[in-house]
Design a protein around this nucleic acid. Structure first.
Lengths: 345, 345
DNA sequence: CTGTTAGCGCCTTCAA
DNA sequence: TTGAAGGCGCTAACAG
């Protein structure tokens, strides 16, 4: 159907090789021939067949992106950055959403392998290590983002411990003694690390860690809403709640609203993950903002480097996350934002 | 590097043809051979090469998605639905974001054509007709979503005129006589249609159409903010503003906030496009919610049908959009939602 | 500076 | 029920 190199070569009256070379600029061709070839290309409307090229050179200039939910603005933002950076490098994005299901995660990787992606960026499930091991067998490079399922692979994530320690520390400084933590999906490194930051902050402040104030698991806002209700039904409810991620914050916010509790007057709520339109929310949430853009960009760069040098030792990037002081923490609004130092490895 | 059909055939001691057939289940193979082949596949870790297959059968089971900005939740939601539906049909998504730049739009299509996608879904720019014409030459099917650049191609969009007419009509019924309209990017069918719905509603209500109250163009919230300020600086400012899309609403909301104007007490604001967390916004915006999920699903279905029958006449789908009555229109909250009837063609 | 040739990995007639 | 052989469109030695 579509014109091929051969069609062009016939029309231009040159060899197929020459056409290939003028298309790719891969060896010098005389002006006269080049002109004839270009004319023929124009005439036939020839468009190179990347599939054939990929087959031949065993490189598809394609990278796969696999994650839990593009609709989560955190991931949306990252995908945007990935796409942009990839495009700059002539790479095209294959997208797959596996909804936090290890079976679908595995399935997504299979599809990417079949399509011979040059590499892939993945926000793995808690069982992601097995899937990654398979990728290693297939010798296809991968970089993890957001969470770490296997530290022997590259990753770019944020300093969860430091960021949450600082956020919770802020609450302690404000005088809170009963601070609850709603963590994300059990088994995810993000959940563990953020919980660890929470613990460290309490210890820093010489406060007891009350297991009743830690509610773990779940990926939907509904579970956070239920957890919030449970928390507030405690004989001694918390005076502050830390949402382990944006979905948790949404659920908590709704539950608090249902109970007619005002934030921050009646209860303080802060959260990991920022929202694009947080300034339109009431209350305005104090959050930890992740550098999504940078995460996506670094991920592509790491991937490119690994594709070039597959035997590099694993590279671990931790980016700083930044606290955005708004109203919901109850401190004076307008407080300057405090960056958290990044650590590597 | 990776095992091929040939590797498997050698190990299994059968012909390459047979291996191909057991992999694809495309012709009966005796149990004994099948077992040997499967064993060999397992042993070699063979994964089919889709690139080679695509080249051979000239079909890539891949569809391209090209749009203006994945970060806009309206599109994010659609992409999610597209991905899901595509996956159900064994199709993989290639994603490209062209930021409303016709040059990059064209570029994105070129990449898709080179990669021999089976079809593509596009939210075209206002200049998209030329790009689509090229696709037609390449004989690659495309369905437009959100807006229409060329009605000779399939599309699935919403009933913009009817929806906005109804929304503005609601404002008229509430007694507003000076209603402003902030339209989106000039030249887009959505902008035209929504503006047309606005006009119709005013005419329905026997109200004059004041050009000073219509501010067109721009795709960023900032332009809407500027427009809102201009509107409020008018000798006779509007008592209600209709934002032509979600970004416009954000800009208007901010400008109104900057002026210390309360919604809906001082001024009414409603908008085309809903927000996922609209209930956390203050004010709670009355909006027109588009059925993003359905748009994505129908788009994939249309595309699949067209891939199967390229010569079908153009198919036009218009889905109903629904008004979500919340606080910002100033009518009693809790009013039941009113669906808008869909029309076809 | 240009052309011939041998595959990349796979599907699919055609023949047995 | 099985196998051999000819490409799909392209790149990259290898010759000239």
């Amino acid at each position: 159907m579509a014109a091929t190199l051969k069609d062009v070569s016939l029309i231009a009256g040159v060899s197929l090789t020459t056409v290939s070379h003028v298309v790719n600029g891969t060896r010098p061709v005389s002006e006269s021939l080049k002109a004839r070839v270009e004319e023929a290309i124009h005439q036939t409307g020839y468009t190179p067949n990347f599939l054939a090229r990929s087959l031949k050179v065993s490189a598809s200039r394609t990278i796969g992106v696999a994650l839990q939910d593009i609709r989560n603005p955190h991931f949306t933002e990252i995908v945007y950055a990935l796409e942009e950076r990839a495009r700059e490098h002539g790479l095209t994005l294959l997208l797959s959403d596996f909804g936090d299901d290890p079976v679908r995660e595995r399935e997504a990787l299979r599809i990417f392998v079949e399509r011979r992606v040059d590499g892939l960026v993945i926000a793995p499930t808690s069982e992601g290590a097995a899937a990654l091991a398979w990728l290693r067998e297939c010798r296809i490079p991968a970089v993890q983002i957001d969470r770490i399922a296997d530290p022997s692979f590259d990753y770019v994530v944020v300093s969860n411990v430091a960021a949450n320690r600082r956020l919770v520390g802020h609450l302690c400084e404000l005088g809170h003694r009963r601070i609850a933590m709603l963590t994300g999906i059990t088994g995810l490194s993000t959940s563990r690390e953020r919980l660890s930051g929470y613990r460290r902050a309490l210890i820093d402040a010489a406060l007891p860690v009350d297991p009743a104030l830690i509610i773990s698991g779940g990926s939907r806002p509904e579970s956070a809403a239920a957890a919030t209700h449970a928390l507030m039904d405690l004989p001694e409810p918390p005076t502050a709640i830390v949402a382990g991620n944006n979905l948790k914050a949404l659920g908590a916010l709704r539950a608090l609203g249902e109970r007619g509790l005002r934030v921050p007057e009646d209860i303080v709520l802060v959260s990991f993950d920022d929202f694009a339109w947080a300034d339109l929310f009431r209350p305005k949430l104090t959050t930890i903002a992740q550098p999504c853009r940078a995460i996506g960009e670094r991920a592509v760069e790491l991937l490119l480097e690994r594709i070039a040098s597959p035997d590099l030792p694993p590279r671990h990037v931790r980016l700083a996350a930044e606290i955005r002081h708004r109203e919901s923490c109850g401190c004076v609004p307008g407080t300057p934002q405090s960056p958290i130092p990044s650590t590597n490895g």
